[in-house]
Every structure is written in C-alpha cells, then in structure tokens.
Simulated assay, not measured.
Amino acid sequence: MSNEDKEIETIPVGPLGLVPLKSCEELGKKVDAYLVRWRNARQSEHKDTLAFMGYEKDSFIVQSQINRFGTGEGKGTLLQSVRGKDLFLMVDVCNHSLTYSLCGMTNHMSPDDHFADLKRVISAAAGKARRINVIMPFLYESRVSHRDGRESLDCSLALHELVNMGVDNILTFDAHEPRVQNAIPLKGFETVQPIYQFIKALLQTETELKVDSEHMMIISPDAGGMGRAIYFANMMGLDVGMFYKRRDYTRLVGGRNPVLAHEFLGADVTGKDVIVVDDMISSGETVQEVARELKRRGARKVFVCATFGLFTNGLARFDRYYEEGMIDKIFTTNLVYQSPELLSRPYYVSVEMSKYIALLIDSLNHDTSVSELLQPSERIHRALTKHRAAQERN
C-alpha cells in the first residue's frame, strides 16, 4: 500500500508544522514535498472535520530566521504563527558551509552555533506550539556520550537542555552511543538505522552483486561498531568479520594511544565483495586502512557504507585509494551537508533519506507506531527478492 492510500485511523496531534533551520533547508524542502503530496492525495471522510483543520496545504514549512549582531550574537524569529501546531524542527549540526560575520570577520558555523540556533527557534515558539519534536540526524556531541575520568558529558547535557525547553520527541540517526537516551528516560528518543536505504542504493548501483554468504561479507572496522555490522549481516543473510585496533598503551600521541596495527577476525575474504559498515566517516583513516587490509587479503570489491560522510580531512586520500583500486564505492546519506566536490566524485553515492524522514513525521503526527519503520525487515526482504529475481532473468 502506498502512503497516499494509507487509511487514516487516528486524528493528528495538531496541525503539522515543519521548521527546517537554514542548515537543513534543502532536505526540509524534499521532506515537505512528500508530505504535501501524500496528504493531498489521501481520501477520507474525516479530512473535512475540525480535527483535521490544515491537513491539506501547499507547504507545511513554517519560515524561521536567525539574525546576527556584529558581535556574532544571534536572535531567532518564527515568521508565522505556530499556535497549536505539532512542530518538527530539523537541524544539521555538521553543516560547516554556512557562515556569519563576527566583528567584520567571516566565521564558519560550528556544531555549537547550530545547536544554539536550534534553541533560539524553540524559544521563539514561546510555549505556543502543541508539541515540539526535534529531528537532528547527527546527534550533537554524540561522541561525548559517556565519561572516562574527569570529562564533560556534553551530549547528555544537550538532551537535558532540549527536554527542559519543552521538546517531547528527539529523532536522530545511527547515534554513536545509543545508550545516551538513558539521560532522558521519560521523553521520546529514537535512533534510526538507515539500513534499508543503504541496501536499496547498493543494489541499484551494483546490479551484478550476488547477495549470499559465498560471495559477500559484512565488515565492522572496529569493535565498537560490531553490533551495527551484525544487524546489517543478519538482515542480508551474510557472514560478518571485524577489525580491531591493536594499540600501544605505553604512550599517548595527540591524547590517544597510537594504533600499531589493524587485526582481522573473521572468515576468508578472498574473492568476496565486502561491505564496510560504520556510523560515520570523519577523517577517514580507519576505513582507508581497513580497505587496504581487505584488498591485501584478496577481497574482490570493497564498498563503504557510513551514515554520515563528514570527510573532515578532505577527499585527496580517498581519491588516491579509488585510483589504486582499494575502495570501489562509498555510500553516505544526505542527512548532513554534502559538498559539491564530494557529489562530483565517481566513487561516491548519495543515499536519499527525505522520504524516510517524511514517513516518520507523518506517523508521529498521527501519533501512530513507528516500529515498522524502525525495523524494516520486510522491505529489505522484498528488495533482496526483487534483486535476485532480476539476476535470474538476466
């Protein structure tokens, strides 16, 4: 059943309002287009009732803006009424392409700046909205989610701030440490795995792949990502392998114990297509070394699937690895900012997530379960069956 034909079984929590901050403007427009199309196409006797007021619109986007003073201080403003609305705020804390003026100098926005802007827009709602939901694909400070010694707990503090400001639900994707949700146990917190979107993009791009344990394998680049890799492997019916970092714990370099070698645990990868699964590509050094080791061990093709492609050290080394045949394709989502340089690379595939976000928003606005969306086993099974059937025909 398509989303246009979905039966309306519950009334909306309130009229839908979508507030994509400037950092998430492009993604927000795509999400809005899906919601507008679905809701205009649905047929129901209830759509003309008072409870469904504002259910059909040309756009659900509530315009907002952030004004800056010369000192760099900001002020958030909502340009339309939000009274009684079920608001969904979207923010990309990793969008470094945006700038502002600070004492005549140009400053690129940091995650701290984006989080501050999110709080400004929430504050501008001033308690008028019926419910406030935050969609933050890359969870702010998610790599600082637990304490080792005398360290700050930035992610937990940020979640507490949002809840204290009146936020009811927080949606994020592939949180670095999902247990951080324990910081706000009485509020809605969902960390979403985009595994179906990765599998769909992979099968559409590489149509000749044979998806079975004899020809393919899932690889975790480190011990911390093993749960993600096992989930991925179970969904696809494949074997899993893991690299772990052997470190020198006798010294510190840059605040960390240096890595001596990447050791591999798993079956033989000779002649197999392997998928390296991770939550993010930051500097990229880990996946680069893992790809080199896999090729040295005889892997046929190496694909990298990471939810967030940050590429903080640039693309030059990835270009070299692609030219040397170490990496065949890199898949990351459009949940965070993608530079034009990245999108132009022949080895890069952007995984579209706007429809998935629209489905989540539509379900939450109707106050219905999202468990089927969070556990997409049936959709993955259909995609794999379709792929295998196409291969048999050819």
Rank of each mutant, 00 (worst) to 15 (best):
S59Y: 09
A116Y: 15
T106S: 12
D239E: 04
A316L: 03
S152H: 09
P376I: 02
K6Y: 00
D58S: 14
Q80A: 14
E161C: 04
G237W: 07
L18E: 11
V240R: 06
I275R: 04
R246A: 15
K386Y: 01
G225C: 03
A358W: 07
M226Y: 15
N313I: 00
D273H: 03
Q193T: 01
F173V: 14
D48Q: 13
I61C: 13
G225L: 01
Q204R: 05
E206K: 02
R251L: 14
H160I: 13
D212F: 09
E206G: 04
A126S: 15
R83N: 10
H176W: 05
D5R: 13
S23C: 07
T312G: 00
M109V: 10
T312V: 05
E285N: 15
L89P: 08
H146V: 06
F60V: 05
E4K: 11
N334W: 06
G188Q: 07
M216H: 08
S369E: 04
S339K: 03
F88W: 15
D367A: 13
N107H: 14
D362G: 02
P15M: 04
F318V: 01
D5Y: 05
T49H: 10
S354H: 09
Q80H: 12
V36E: 06
G314H: 07
E177P: 00
T205S: 10
L21S: 10
S369F: 04
Q181R: 12
R297H: 04
R382W: 07
G241N: 00
E392I: 09
L139R: 11
G255R: 05
F198Q: 01
D278R: 02
I218R: 02
Y322P: 00
N40A: 11
R251E: 13
R130Y: 05
Y244T: 12
K386C: 10
T368S: 10
R143L: 09
V290Q: 06
F308Q: 01
Y347W: 14
T71K: 08
T286G: 06
E4R: 12
S213N: 07
D58G: 12
L16H: 06
A129Q: 07
P178L: 01
L78C: 11
P20N: 02
M90W: 03
